[in-house]
Amino acid sequence: MKLEFKGNRVLIAGGSCEMALCVAGLLMGEGLHPLLTWRSEQGRGKIEDSLKQFEGRFDTAHMDFSIPESVERLFSQMEEGPDYLVDFAQGDYESLVGSADAVLTSRYFTENVSTRADLIRRAARAMLKKRQGRMVFISSAAAWRSNPGQGFYAAAKLASEALYRSVGVEMAGRGITSVTLRPGYVDSGRGGRYIEAHDGAVARTPIGRAIAPGEVAQAVLFFLSDSAAAFNAVEICMDGGLTAVK
């Protein structure tokens, strides 16, 4: 299937994770221009190393949810706002609800929900100028079915899903739509570490394996394309059937 894209500039938040790098490669293959955000010099280096064969066809910029001003700076650096937003950004905080630290909890939600809301707000306003835009939020199957210790992660993901869904509801009439993708166990980064630490997690998945980062990237590419325009304000699970079984 040949995918078509109305826009060109793609802001990829959380751009140094393996899935984001896969998405960026696919996008450049389609002739689009990604801007990948990084939180640390290590992340920046990872992006530049991984994508060096595409030199000159992508940009990088600093953005860190723990530094709210970095979101404002990011948008002031972009001459034109993005046509697309792909949001992989997410901080880590694994704790049982009953043993959580109140200060850390508050900070986690400020960073991963409130600051993300500012990212979405700025992207939505930039897209509204062009009356065109598409947002894909990478949530998690854990948003719906969280394991012990994932309560705060799930809560932040669910709150963020609601923000993206609302953009799709409020702005679709102006050409701006959104989709949330909920991958299950993905064999990379945080997901890979989780699989390693929790025996049997993947075995419970009906397809009998973890999701590959490239599979998530292909799905994101499709959801960004014009072909997927009717998917709006919705959460789509990509978990190999995990959440359908007892």
Binding site: R125, L128, K129, E170, M171, G173, R174
Partner: peptide, 10 residues
């Protein structure tokens, strides 16, 4: 409407 006002701000 609200969305018009948002567009007007921009």
């Amino acid at each position: 409407e609200s969305i018009d006002l948002l567009e007007l701000s921009i």
